[in-house]
Design a protein around this nucleic acid. Structure first.
Length: 462
RNA sequence: GGUCGGAUGGCCGAGAGGCGAGGCUCAGGACUGCAAAUCCUGCUACACGGGUUCAAAUCCCGUUCCGACCUCCA
């Protein structure tokens, strides 16, 4: 534990001290969505995990340039377009919006820049030209362009594999490839497919080329952190490294990978149907609660999803939220967020969010004790520290992005409920508990919960 | 076949040689007209077999089971 941020680097398989290339300025590239289906909670976990990293870097005084791409052209998008009988760009736009909406609902900060693959064809062509000129890549003449992996001095260092150990695809096309493991930088267009002109023929980008080209365009030849899901290590990130390093670029210093959300011990796949789409889950819990759940596990640990544990997590969050609201009531305003030393230590230790959660629980306990004793200083301290921690986790209930939940009718509602509360208070005063309980039961049916406290009766919507 | 990860109490989920993380559930208690909320107490776990060590959930060896990747998955 120290003020020094340590992060796990997949490339070294060790936790390392993190030193920005330029002190105070940090460049991050996160592999974003291939917009061919609505986001499920696994996709959004990645967004949340890296959003926590970003918020922590900002909170500790860094200027963070955060790039998260949108892959808006690929095989699956084209297939979907045929299936749905709409244009490929309509597919891409539709699902890009779905992702944007999911990110917003979970309070994932918009990236500094969010480049689309199709907007960077020029940069890709430039990169391919460099690779062909220096002999790393070849164009067999059919419109494809391949990277020649046998010629790379170091390849597969991120996944620690040997080229000869890889099982190559059975259907590898050796009429154009020199080696079955060579991968496509550029794919020639089949009839009816979208294409862009290049010196080697009309076609479209391979899967990996975009990220190398766009990371270079926005972050330069060498940048601090490259992130993505665990399943991108091979082939996607290996191939990004291969392309970028072959072009003479230093590329990413630290590679970070988030683990999956699993169901029944298995990685969530797109064939599971709709139930685990973000949109569906948000019918059961609020965005802030889903974020609390997804962000609560350590980013490198698998998160075994169940509706039971989601609900349990949401209950835990509501306790914290309840305390903050009560504290606000007593203090008259929200205390400014404060980052405690212990919380900072936890975050600096490779983003040990679970440790941070334990600290929040401790603050919560102390805060509730202070509340019972009307110890305003104690309330203030606990509330400030909890808000500080929640602000890093992106789960501050007072964040305006979540405040839209409460309606503008609150004042009217408050007035109406106060009428009922006055009646009940009068009944209680004359010890007519049957009448008092009847009032409580009646408004409970409407979804309004009452709590009697020494300071009077509070109400909330359940 | 190669590479990588996992198995922790009723459940979820941290930790990585020595002081029981934390949460949820459950049981009991305090407070309360009753509730609710809150607080207190209790439930002593690390897949299996060996080994190292004064000390192992943690390190080593072996075993079982589960999962992931191996060229268009977050």
């Amino acid at each position: 534990m120290s003020a020094q941020l340590k992060l796990y680097n997949t490339a070294s398989r060790a936790v390392e001290n993190f030193k920005p290339i330029t002190p105070g300025k940090i460049g991050i590239y996160l592999c974003g969505a291939t917009v061919q289906a609505p986001p499920h909670i696994g996709h959004i976990r990645s967004g949340v995990n890296f959003d926590i990293l970003r918020r922590w870097l900002i909170a500790t005084g860094n200027d963070v340039t955060f790039i998260r791409n949108v892959t808006d052209i690929d095989d699956k998008i084209l297939h979907k377009a045929v299936h749905e009988e709409i244009e490929w760009w309509a597919v891409a736009q539709k699902y890009e919006r779905a992702f944007t909406e999911a990110y917003r609902a979970l309070n994932v900060l918009p990236p500094t820049y969010e480049p689309r693959a199709t907007g960077h064809i020029t940069q890709m062509i430039t990169l391919m030209q460099i690779l062909i000129d220096n002999g790393s890549a070849y164009a067999p003449g059919n419109g494809d362009v391949y990277l020649e992996v046998r010629r790379l001095k170091s390849y597969l260092t991120l996944s620690n594999q040997k080229l000869d150990d890889l099982q190559s695809a059975d259907d590898a096309d050796l009429t154009n490839k020199k080696d079955p493991r060579d991968f496509a930088l550029w794919k020639s267009a089949k009839p009816g497919e979208p294409s862009w002109p290049t010196p080697w023929g009309d076609g479209r980008p391979g899967w990996h080329l975009e990220c190398s080209a766009m990371a270079h365009a926005y972050l330069g030849e060498t940048f601090d952190i490259h992130g993505g899901g665990l399943d991108l290590i091979f082939p996607h990130h290996e191939n990004e490294i291969a392309q970028s390093e072959s072009a003479g670029w230093g590329f990413a210093k630290i590679w970070m990978h988030n683990a999956w959300v699993t169901t029944s011990g298995e990685k969530m796949s797109k064939s599971l149907g709709n139930s685990l789409q973000v949109q569906e889950i948000l019918k059961k819990v609020r965005g802030i609660e889903l974020r609390w759940y997804l962000g609560g596990a350590h980013y490198r640990s698998m998160l075994e999803f169940s509706f039971e544990s989601l609900e349990e997590s949401a209950i835990n969050f509501r306790r914290i939220e309840g305390f903050l609201k009560r504290a606000e009531g007593v203090l008259g305003s929200n205390p400014d967020a404060v980052i405690s030393g212990a919380f900072a230590d936890a975050m600096n230790d490779d983003l040990a969010v679970p440790t941070g959660l334990a600290l929040i629980s401790e603050s919560l306990r102390l805060g509730n004790i202070a509340l019972a004793a009307n110890d305003k200083e104690g309330i203030l301290q606990s509330a400030a520290e909890i808000r500080g921690a929640l602000s890093i986790l992106g789960c501050d209930p007072f964040d305006p992005i979540f405040a839209a939940d409460s309606s503008t009718n609150t004042d009217i509602l408050d007035g109406l409920i106060s009428l009922a509360l006055e009646q009940r208070a009068a009944a209680r005063a004359r010890k007519d508990f049957a009448a008092a309980d009847a009032i409580r039961d009646q408004i409970a049916v409407l979804g309004v919960v009452l709590e009697d406290t020494p300071q009077g009766t509070r109400w909330s919507i359940s």
